[in-house]
Design a protein around this nucleic acid. Structure first.
Lengths: 206, 206
DNA sequence: GTATGTTTCGCGCGATCC
DNA sequence: GGATCGCGCGAAACATAC
């Protein structure tokens, strides 16, 4: 039995720190400034290589699987980068990178040495994220400047289409309603006419 | 040949003309739209007309020399990955990766230069692309499957909203039509009744 | 459990472009 | 000489077999 040749393993949250399960992550403008530190006593001492996870129901709610440093990798940074870009509309690589770096070293509870390599890593990752965004045409880079564009026009197009359809329907309804109105009047009139006949005819029997 | 149109800094390098064998989506049903939308001179049709602008001539068997030998890096792969995902709606990492790898080795009509490292590289890059797509919630990774979702928030929401509205309208129309139908019948009946009265009343005058 | 193969991907060196 | 980022090593995370 070969390994499933086509598998896309644990793509869901991996080294997340405290996030909930990859639930409905609405928009990319949602980076919960995590970095919520642990409880009281720091527990960040550099242990040996392996920090085997104990039982879940232990003393404190231990984090998930902490990788090397920080929260995660490209995944997390992409989110943050996206958020920044979206909120700024126009910015630069350095601005984004600086902010993210600051965010990471500033927060995070206590003595978590924000080594220089961490900053390097973050900056490298920001490039990755930006490149993908650029490739997807979600942002545009014009000589050092980054502009937040929109999402590819595919959706917009659909939306426009649907909206047009809606209008058509509304229009149709209008017509139907008008027609109906006329009919009702006619019915009423007819009824009156009938009533008239009935009155004239009086109580005659047939 | 460098296109310094967009992109901040210089996240660009040779454009390598036609990238792949023209057909980017040649698997199954595809959607008319795709991610990429910019790129001025986008002329995909060149089969074996590779315009490698860098040294390429004779010595190519090297391995340490010259880095950028393919089209590009993350940027390009992101685009391709995105296209694939969008056209498939549901797929897996391996499917996408395999296709891209094939696409790349298939093109380039000459010596089998599709070294193993190239494939490795591509596969590694696909992970990167997928990860940011995941982070942006543009796709969803469920177990081993990848689903193409849409572009973030608002658009989708609006779309969904409009669609619901449309349904409501359609429903309304249905009801109106039914009512109308009934009315028409009634009118007909009434008319008949009136005719009946008229007949009975005969030629009397009032 | 242990051993072993596979998948996912953190991370950063150093080539390249400016 | 700094800005960009290609590229791939190797270690977790995961799966399966023993």
């Amino acid at each position: 039995d070969r390994y499933s040749r086509y598998t896309f393993g644990h793509l869901n949250q991996k080294t997340s720190s405290g996030e909930g399960p990859g639930a409905a992550s609405m928009s990319c403008g949602n980076v919960p400034t995590h970095c919520q530190s642990n409880h009281g006593t720091n527990n960040m001492a550099s242990h040996h290589e392996n920090a085997i996870l104990f039982n879940e129901g232990s003393r404190a709610a231990k984090k998930k699987r902490e990788s090397r440093l920080k929260g995660g990798g490209l995944r997390q940074f992409s989110n943050i980068v996206c958020q920044k870009l979206e909120s700024k509309v126009r910015t630069t690589y350095n601005e984004v990178a600086d902010e993210i770096v600051a965010e990471f070293s500033g927060a995070r509870g206590d003595a978590a040495a924000s080594s220089e390599s961490d900053e390097k890593n973050i900056r490298r990752r920001v490039y990755d994220a930006l490149n993908v965004l650029l490739a997807l045409d979600i942002i545009a880079g014009d000589k050092k400047e980054i502009h937040w564009k929109g999402l590819p026009n595919t959706r917009i197009k659909d939306l426009e289409e649907i909206k047009a359809l809606r209008l058509q329907l509304v229009n149709k309804i209008g017509k139907k309603v008008a027609y109906l109105k006329g009919l009702e009047e006619k019915v009423v009139a007819d009824n009156e006419t009938i009533m008239g006949w009935q009155y004239l005819i009086g109580g005659w029997k047939f």
